[in-house]
Simulated scan of single mutants.
Amino acid sequence: MNHILVVDDEPQLLRALKINLHARHYSVLTAATGAEALDLASREMPGAVLLDLGLPDLDGMDIIRGLRAWSAVPIIVLSGRDTATEKIRALDAGADDYLTKPFVMDELLARLRAVLRRPPAETPPPRAVIGDHEVDLVAGTVTGPGGPVRLTPTEWKILTILLAHPGKLVPGRQILREVWGPDQQEHGNYLRVYLANMRRKLETDPARPRHLITEPGIGYRYRP
């Protein structure tokens, strides 16, 4: 069975969704707070997330971005926020679909089936090791022998892409497209600068990297 994580602080809606999903042979996980949702997602690896934006502890947009830092799990937003601006913000943050409350249950189930039919994307593990450093993509932290290591948002994006393909070559043009957009695919100098900075932060010997590898003229590789 597909595990579906339902995140909402309305007990009646949680109960209704759980009953309907169980009737369609889905296994259901529930969370009433953003912190609980992120913790469950990292431990249980659900097949999809149904997410309310108005939670008591975290804004739903932050939860979407938190999940997208390490996971490609399909996210369907269920929200009372019905403006076009809110829908665009959620989709830009990484949501796959958006339904405004109140919604028709059959429509939600149809949209859930649609996102579950999509081929799974490669995603990085919630945690990884680079030499003496432990990377926690859920918490957004890197810890080394000397304590926390700060990565810039762009460095995080590059690292997440590489960690999603352990041992595999990732073309430089692909990284440029995913991080900076399709108009920047020829600017390989961007990547060279960022990878040099990342090696200084994460590699024991930046001049002889063992984990963040350059394949000259082709791309980059994360070697576990």
Rank of each mutant, 00 (worst) to 15 (best):
184 Q>H: 14
130 I>S: 06
171 P>A: 04
194 Y>F: 13
117 R>E: 13
118 R>G: 08
175 I>V: 15
180 W>M: 08
198 M>C: 01
144 G>E: 02
159 L>S: 03
143 T>F: 05
148 P>E: 12
136 D>K: 00
118 R>W: 09
172 G>R: 00
137 L>Q: 14
203 E>M: 10
115 V>I: 10
199 R>E: 12
140 G>H: 12
141 T>S: 15
136 D>I: 00
184 Q>K: 15
198 M>G: 06
203 E>A: 09
123 T>L: 04
173 R>I: 03
137 L>A: 12
140 G>M: 13
158 I>Q: 07
197 N>K: 12
198 M>Q: 11
138 V>S: 10
127 R>G: 05
171 P>F: 01
166 P>I: 02
173 R>V: 09
128 A>F: 01
191 L>A: 10
203 E>R: 09
155 E>S: 04
133 H>N: 14
139 A>R: 07
137 L>G: 04
169 L>T: 08
156 W>T: 06
182 P>V: 08
133 H>F: 14
137 L>H: 07
122 E>R: 14
162 L>V: 11
190 Y>W: 00
198 M>W: 06
147 G>Q: 06
178 E>H: 09
194 Y>T: 11
141 T>W: 13
176 L>I: 11
136 D>H: 07
185 Q>L: 09
181 G>T: 12
163 L>K: 04
182 P>T: 08
198 M>S: 01
173 R>E: 14
125 P>W: 00
147 G>L: 03
174 Q>L: 15
168 K>Q: 15
183 D>H: 14
180 W>H: 07
170 V>R: 03
148 P>W: 03
145 P>S: 13
152 T>H: 06
146 G>D: 08
158 I>R: 01
134 E>A: 11
126 P>T: 09
196 A>V: 10
142 V>A: 05
155 E>M: 13
123 T>I: 01
136 D>W: 06
164 A>I: 02
146 G>Q: 08
159 L>W: 02
186 E>S: 11
190 Y>R: 14
171 P>R: 05
162 L>N: 04
121 A>I: 04
146 G>R: 07
134 E>M: 09
157 K>S: 10
142 V>W: 02
167 G>D: 13
157 K>M: 04
114 A>D: 15
152 T>S: 15
127 R>E: 15
136 D>E: 14
156 W>I: 03
163 L>G: 00
126 P>Y: 05
154 T>A: 01
